[in-house]
Nucleic acid binder design. Sequence first.
DNA 1: ATCCGCGTCTAAACCGGTTTAGTCGTCTTC
DNA 2: GAAGACGACTAAACCGGTTTAGACGCGGAT
Lengths: 337, 337
Amino acid sequence: MSAKPTISDVAARAGVSKTLVSFVLNDRPGVSADARSRILQAVDDLEFRPSRAARALSSSKTSALGLVLARQPEMLRADPFFPPFIAGVEKVIAPADMALMLRFVPDAVAERAAYTELSHGRADGVIVTDIRSDDPRPELLARLGLPAVTLNRPAPDSPAPAVCLDDTQGVREAVDHLIALGHRRIAHVGGPTEYLHADHRRRQWAETMAAAGLPSGSYVEADFTAAGGARATAQLLDGADPPTAILYASDLMAMAGMAEAHRRGIRIPDDLSVVGFDDSELSAHLHPPLTTVRTDAFGWGQAAATALLSYLAGQHVADVELSAAVFVLRESTAPPP
Amino acid sequence: MSAKPTISDVAARAGVSKTLVSFVLNDRPGVSADARSRILQAVDDLEFRPSRAARALSSSKTSALGLVLARQPEMLRADPFFPPFIAGVEKVIAPADMALMLRFVPDAVAERAAYTELSHGRADGVIVTDIRSDDPRPELLARLGLPAVTLNRPAPDSPAPAVCLDDTQGVREAVDHLIALGHRRIAHVGGPTEYLHADHRRRQWAETMAAAGLPSGSYVEADFTAAGGARATAQLLDGADPPTAILYASDLMAMAGMAEAHRRGIRIPDDLSVVGFDDSELSAHLHPPLTTVRTDAFGWGQAAATALLSYLAGQHVADVELSAAVFVLRESTAPPP
DNA sequence: ATCCGCGTCTAAACCGGTTTAGTCGTCTTC
DNA sequence: GAAGACGACTAAACCGGTTTAGACGCGGAT
């Protein structure tokens, strides 16, 4: 078991130059059928695989994409979005012979450092998720010269192509559904408003209420954790004039909220209607099954990866618009008592 | 806004050779204080960062670790283990200036290809998780010359250091707890037995029952998904002589099982006791809060990364033994009706 | 007969670092 | 005062690919 064979070993065995081997490996024209087959034979015999590191240096292509997640471990633990999202990305990039560099960072400083790192020979491009308001990343990435694709559009003038999924239409449908059932006091438990998607959901909820001529409902900002969802629910339930329905910005918070209600002897959906967001794995198997809004994280991952790959290939990439999040009616909603 | 500066640019600006810059960058002795400060100044002025790709080639070190996950997207969606595990790994490797290459693969063939890929200039070492029975990976990795650390020991003679966490002691405590409450018919809903950890949990359950002189309980193999957990629970509950307690190999299955029981009007814990496994985010916030077994995935990630880093540094690494999974008593268990 | 174009192939430069082998001057040491 | 040790520094080789510039032989056009 000797060391790994190099392109020179292959060239020697096939009786040709390194150049020609490289041509064959990269499907470039101008190689005779005879030479090609001898080279392929040698590649096979030696089990040769080109070194990624060498290729990265000479071609300035790492064949890797980067993904930086700035999250507290707590918020990540039960996140229903990233696993399928990453699976979708992988599905697209694996056949393209690319891989994913993943970075989890605790704060904005480390985040900046991580992107800088990635831009120096670790990744060819990045997918930017969890867009925040006044997100500094598009500017940073432009300065680093690191190609990027963003999930939704951070700002009208963001230079990176955006892969957009309207995740608020489902929220509107959900609120309309609650209103149609007769609810008038519909509260919202949101995520940290620094995240654009959390803010959008809150806005959509407020606007839909307003459009129906209802008074604005109670709003509590939470943090996407189960504990936060339970706390927010307790606050709403214990307040004066408690809501008859609560719309949550995530299934996890909704589930914790349901338990919190149960604990008070409040029945769902009889006494309180609950709507989640995400359609996470467990939601359909809850008792009662959770009415929610579904976003296709896997498909979003695929679309983002596809867009980034074309962008890296030098093609002009227009914003992509995916089909909107859909409202999933199950059994956690009913007319108010 | 020119191209990225190289080490030669730094050398030129500081009036020294590339070699000396390299020495300073790598903290090697034999550089005068004067030269060192001039070089650091130049590095600063130019915002120079060494190219990972170049460094990888010349030093044969990629500064990256690999992690290959062979899972169906479905099984990954609500997995409570990997997010904190990866966060633990990151916590350790980030300060060591390393990064994580993540690969999700659909099957064993792709898995093999992924490891092969990683060994050719993409990663310096890998962490092997989800050990299966007769796992082919230790042998493959040895053949590829790719340093590895395994989570638990696949076989007594596996060449890679193992980072072990006894996740069955908590299961024994859980079963003992149920027995002490008076349960005699304790069923188990397990994970796919090809996974060693799933198999271990099943064994521990069976052995603890036997040790207490109880007849062996019903066993249903499921797949770690919510749907699977619900199905298995239905099967147990609808069978002849249904159990008074069910031990699940994951919280997700336990939660789906609880809902399935509720649907039949079976109250928890009054009519049926339920124990999960993982202590996932939601478990403490369920109604009733789920009694479960907690494994410290974050700590496991840290330990595995630490072990791999020392191993890569050429140190001899003995197997690491972490503190065992602990039984977490909450409110989903009670004496049988 | 000469020139041109073309298909096939190669030598050498190059990517940006690390490492080896050695140069040069100064300071000890006998 | 010569030899040796040592600290500071550098030129050049090297890692394993890709890419550029050009060589070589051959057939067809002039």
